[in-house]
Design a protein around this nucleic acid. Structure first.
Lengths: 144, 144
DNA sequence: CACAATTCAATTGCGCACAACTCAATCAGC
DNA sequence: GCTGATTGAGTTGTGCGCAATTGAATTGTG
């Protein structure tokens, strides 16, 4: 009665493959910036507004301190961010951009175009995909 | 000019988030089977047809031997597969299901329904999402 | 046949992801 | 003010994911 599910019929595998392919397309461009994809995501958040605490970055990106703490140390080693204990709440660590970290945003401006060029989808399809994925992610999160 | 790249960056992050959310929804069900998500994907391929070489599994799943070799050893330790050197070509390692590995497919039949239930999307939307993701992945791969 | 090139699996090294835990700082109740 | 609960960051351990390398088996070419 219960049949073995088939790989190619599964939406979850399609998501898994597409996500890996997207980061693979970004990899060569991000290599030039000296960033990995998760590091790039952290920098994107900081370029929007900084400083941000580790907690805030985690909420924004869906990552916990087990992932972020060593990642942020690597960004600090690269000279892109600075980690400072908050004065008001000494439990918090505020992540500040360095001048070098701020300057990197200019070189990163062309990164997203890479995916647009490679996607092979119309702007309308991309917009619909984005919308569907957003609703899917929200529904999945509320199911956990 | 800054509009399209912005949208596409969001599509990339939307893929990353949706993929993580999907595996998070599967996690409790797969825990009951004693499998991780990538291990489940390998079992899906083997349930369709076996034995398969490490190379074939890698082509099917987009994974290399650096990922698959230790993963397959863990599946062997669990008693779900057996690794045998091929007689015709001694470079190849054929992955065979054990009786226990074959039996697990029955308990796995209900797994995909979990995502469908939690997705909050209509069957038509899920089908369209699957189609769009397939075309996106193909286009991205041809761009690497 | 010889032997260089290729193929296949395994290994090493690095960087996520995530669960489980520790520890200090803060807050809430009394 | 005290004390128990909570919060925030860090650490440890396990398992991917991928690049680069190794080494054995096979194939292609002269």
């Amino acid at each position: 009665m219960t049949e073995a599910p088939r790989l190619n019929h599964q939406v979850c595998f399609a998501l898994y493959s597409a996500s890996k392919a997207a980061t693979a397309v970004y990899r060569p461009v991000l290599d030039e910036l000296g960033l990995t994809y998760p590091q790039y995501l952290v920098m994107l958040v900081l370029w929007e507004d900084e400083p941000r605490s580790v907690r805030e970055l985690g909420t924004e990106l869906g990552l916990d301190s087990g992932t972020l703490s060593p990642l942020l140390k690597r960004l600090e080693t690269l000279g892109l961010v600075e980690r400072r204990r908050s004065a008001e709440d000494e439990r918090r660590v505020e992540i500040h951009l360095t001048d070098q970290g701020r300057a990197l945003s200019e070189r990163a401006g062309a990164v997203p175009q890479r995916l647009a060029d490679a996607a092979g989808l119309s702007p309308a399809e991309l917009a619909q995909l984005h919308d569907t994925l957003g609703r899917l992610t929200a529904a999945l999160h509320s199911a956990i």
